[in-house]
């Protein structure tokens, strides 16, 4: 599933990234690489999504993160 489809407070693991060079480079540089765990802190329409990953609160523009595929981690 896509990152944006995750509900708030859900945990997931990044499974795949797709997009142009710039996007891939930028998203890896902020720490979202395949296999990395994240949790969705805030997911409201018309606002960037907030995720927490690798010690960091990250704000992601909704359009930008269409290229992030995740697998939900069920507790």
């Amino acid at each position: 599933m896509r990152l944006a489809e995750l509900n708030e407070n859900k945990e997931a693991v990044v499974s795949a990234l797709s997009g142009d060079n710039r996007f891939i480079s930028r998203i890896t540089s902020i720490g979202l690489t395949p296999g990395c765990k994240l949790s969705v802190v805030k997911n409201d329409k018309n606002r960037p999504i907030l995720v927490y990953s690798r010690d960091t609160m990250i704000a992601l523009n909704r359009k930008e993160c269409e290229g992030i595929e995740v697998t939900e981690v069920k507790e």
């Binding site: 930028r26 902020i30 960037p48 960091t56 990250i58 704000a59 992601l60 930008e64 993160c65």
Partner: peptide
């Protein structure tokens, strides 16, 4: 162009 992309930023 590279700055016209949306936000990918840490808080």
């Amino acid at each position: 162009a590279e700055n016209k992309y949306g936000m990918i930023m840490e808080l």
